[in-house]
Design a protein around this nucleic acid. Structure first.
Lengths: 364, 364
DNA sequence: TCCACTTAAGCAACGCTGTTGCCAAAGTGC
DNA sequence: GCACTTTGGCAACAGCGTTGCTTAAGTGGA
């Protein structure tokens, strides 16, 4: 259940409704949305919407932008988000590269920087490098916070890293708090696959409330969006997809197990048999779709990008066959959209999520 | 993200806070809880808690029950839920049996009836039989609604059945609305595995925010509780666990696939090799634990009950080994508690969930 | 051109929420 | 017996969305 455990008072109620309206304004994009439509969609009275949008306009977060055609009376006024009213920074710390982006309230990329990074260096030096990139992008703008995405495992709630694969000295380092203190900004930390999935969840072209993002690069991982929200699990460990067993007693995997999807996929890719890799991935995807009843499967990662069509076709074939067998409707399998900074952009969305009321709790 | 899509006003805020307090009162059980502790746990001010509990006492839902020892000042007054203030009915429609229970606000079993049922009969007759059982249990008490659990597939949101396996004439029947009209009560419909999981989620001895309930009977299914709420998926299809592939190219399953957990498990059970069945179940459980990062795995169903210890031990061994391999803490694997009416009791909880604010949306 | 009608949106008064400031009640312990 | 601590209710209050009404801004027929 996606629920709040804390009591609510008038300011909380006000934030809740304002976030709801802002989320609709964001979804409306350039087209805008009228006050009455906001009222219908939120269930609030038109008068309440007028008050809320009035406050947003006073803040500078929303603005009037034209009118619709009349339907026999006074035409509706169109309201739009003012994306430049605030910004967020997203950082993607990868093994050998640091990607930093600045996005506006609408999530649009405003600036980006990429520099080499040695994740094996001392934590303090990495923090300093990350902070420098963030500051270089800020440029006097109103920045709400900084989102950081990196390879797991880590703990989203406490902002502490665990044993980052290959870099044992990161274990237990409180990256979120260290960066927050250095920058004087709110900082949010999450796994790279989660950030990527969040970024996809908020793209206008991904209209799915629930989906799985499967990332096949040097490893295989997943980001899960369930009911519009990231599912992180109890210890930010959710999305461990690569080491699902699909072939008992199968070939050995680096993890110590046998018949893991990752091992089967990567071996097939290494052999050049992309169709076989896609089928293995499809079996895991079909398991996942059946278990969670999601709306879509999105594929990404370097290995997928190298032969998108074969992967999409192969995964789709397995998922579709399994759905038909179970009498369920088939769900779409697509390649994930997104450019070279998609993970960093998703990280920036970690900052924007609470602004638009899409946090795991309805009341902050 | 577990979030509300609708606007909130003062009555909604009041309901939200009252439900929060009621939930804490329920969790406190016979021991009770003081006003100040309620204030700490909810984040509300003591005065707000006094007002809310005052209203609950006026309604008859809560009552004062003794005091704690003094800590140097006026001793705290203990408040308790009055379980008999309202009741809920739960119905479990199984293939050959109808189990009906009456539970109080605390979820305690107050009455139960079991009669034979032919799920293959005409829907109208089944509705009538269900309604008669519900009425026989009511007995002039204040009943908040009726929860119905039955084998899927079905749609929880619309309350309509799909092609119930083996009973094609149920397809498309609006069971929820038919029963609601016949009884003049609110009715909630869900899958049997979901009801069982919900019942477990609300038992005092299951202290897990997120867990999977794996049910091995004539088939194999799962109920998922994530972050304290049932995860039903987009079409109430979540929990399709039996037909997860764990052995590519394995033995054929009745579903048309190969190497499904269900087929492997049931074949082992039929051979009398319970340890092997447990290992197969364990592989599926380990996949699930890794994917969702849950806190516990609970096992139930007739086949499990026949040799609980072997199943728990076998599943635990696989789950534990996988967790250690991934560097994650091991999570408990246990047999699900619950008596002969546990599914019907969980169905009754479908009615109580909104009362205690544990619905999927924070604001109803 | 005018006027009746429709639709949009703000103003003002209102009921009700949790909060704040204060005080009475009910204990402990020197 | 008195000072102190802690609980918990009373009363006044700020602020939320709602309600009732008015004004603004269009359409379309006479």
């Amino acid at each position: 259940m996606n629920r709040s455990n804390t009591g609510a008072n008038l300011p909380a109620l006000r934030n809740h409704n304002a976030a709801l309206v802002l989320d609709l304004l964001r979804a409306a994009g350039e087209e805008g949305i009228s006050r009455l439509e906001l009222a219908e969609r939120t269930g609030l009275t038109p008068q309440a919407v007028s008050k809320i949008t009035g406050r947003l306009r006073d803040e500078g977060t929303a603005t009037e932008a034209g009118r619709r055609a009349s339907t026999g009376g006074k035409p509706r006024t169109v309201l739009k988000l003012v994306p430049s009213a605030a910004h967020a920074i997203g950082l993607h710390l990868d093994r050998d590269e640091l990607s930093a982006v600045l996005v506006d309230l609408a999530g649009t990329l405003v600036g980006a920087r990429t520099v080499p990074l040695d994740l094996g260096a001392e934590p303090a030096r990495v923090v300093e490098a990350a902070a420098a990139e963030a500051e270089a992008l800020t440029g006097g703008r109103r920045v709400l916070g900084v989102g950081v995405a990196m390879p797991g495992p880590l703990d989203h709630d406490s902002g502490v890293l665990h044993r980052v694969t290959g870099f044992p000295h990161w274990s237990g380092f409180p990256l979120r708090d260290a960066l927050a203190e250095r920058l004087g900004q709110k900082v949010f930390l999450d796994k790279d696959t989660n950030a990527a999935a969040l970024g996809l969840a908020l793209r206008a072209d991904t209209r799915a409330e629930s989906f799985a993002y499967l990332h096949l690069g040097s490893g295989l991982g997943a980001g899960l969006v369930l009911g519009g929200a990231l599912h992180r699990g109890a210890r930010t460990g959710a999305g461990e997809f690569g080491h699902q067993t699909i072939l008992l007693g199968g070939p050995a995997c680096g993890c110590g197990g046998r018949g893991c999807i990752e091992a089967l996929c990567l071996a097939s890719v290494a052999r050049g048999d992309i169709a076989a890799a896609a089928r293995f991935l499809g079996v895991g995807a079909a398991n996942l779709v059946g278990l969670l009843d999601i709306d879509a499967v999105l594929l990404g990662g370097r290995k997928v990008a190298a032969d998108e069509e074969t992967f999409v076709r192969g995964v789709n074939a397995v998922v579709e066959e399994r759905a038909l067998r179970g009498g369920a409707p088939a769900i779409p399998v697509r390649a994930a959209a997104g450019g070279p900074h998609s993970v960093a952009e998703g990280a920036a969305q970690l900052v924007l999520v609470p602004v638009f009321g899409r946090a795991n709790v309805a009341y902050p």
